[in-house]
Amino acid sequence: MNRRTVFWRTLSVAAALSLWWLSSGTLFNPILVPAPHKVAVHLWEMTADGEILFHAWASLRRVIVGYALGSVLGILTGVAVARIRIAEDMLEPPLQFVRNITPVAIIPLAVNAFGLEEPSKYFVIIYSTIIPVVFNTAAGVASTPQIRVRAAMCLGAGRWDIFARVVLPSAWPFILTGLRVALGFAFMGVVAAEMIAAESGVGYLIMQSRNMLLPEQMFSGLFLLGLIGLVTDRAFQFTIGRLMRRYMLQTAAFD
């Protein structure tokens, strides 16, 4: 970043904080919408006593499990839809239908079906993850240039080699885009699920602070959400940049 960029970005953050600070006590009731410095103090206390870490880890753990399962299932399903005629005929209608149902709306069903414990959270996260991954994977697999497949056939590649060495690598940019979108969806899913039925996690933290009139804690939870999202997305990009760089050469920069 050059000095110009640093200047404007710092100014942007400062402006946002000032607006918040000014509006608390004027536009909004300062008890319900506390000023940023009060939130900062509270955030520090919650960090010091480990409460932040406890809730952050609770959410993160759920996301790791659900996202991993959802990604694997999503890639396999997407490949099947794009490559196997019967799979397309059988899976396309339900997928096209279900993709319109937002993960938040599925939470009551998840609780009914899988109870109040972890499995219902996993279900919601898998559901949030799988939809973007399936559709992006299928699009990527289907968009493999025909002549690339034909070139590989001329060079002696059999069906498996064509899939593993040509179709899948051609689809990686699409699949990774789907996985990145899904990571954001997974956090939305878990927070919503925790707000409705949970005893830990950032979503629970936020909902509890509303119920118990602890606005500083609510803001701390929101800040935490932003931070976790930012860090995981950066970590995702960093990992892709390291491991999958050669597959991203075929498209514009991944950022």
């Binding site: 690339r148 001329c154 002696g156 050669r246 050469l249």
Partner: peptide, 20 residues
């Protein structure tokens, strides 16, 4: 298709494997 006949395509960007 067979390895005795190899096609050279005009659209070389798609014909090559960009990750190799």
């Amino acid at each position: 298709p067979g390895t005795d006949r190899t096609v050279i395509f005009q659209d070389v960007s798609n014909a090559l494997f960009p990750w190799m």
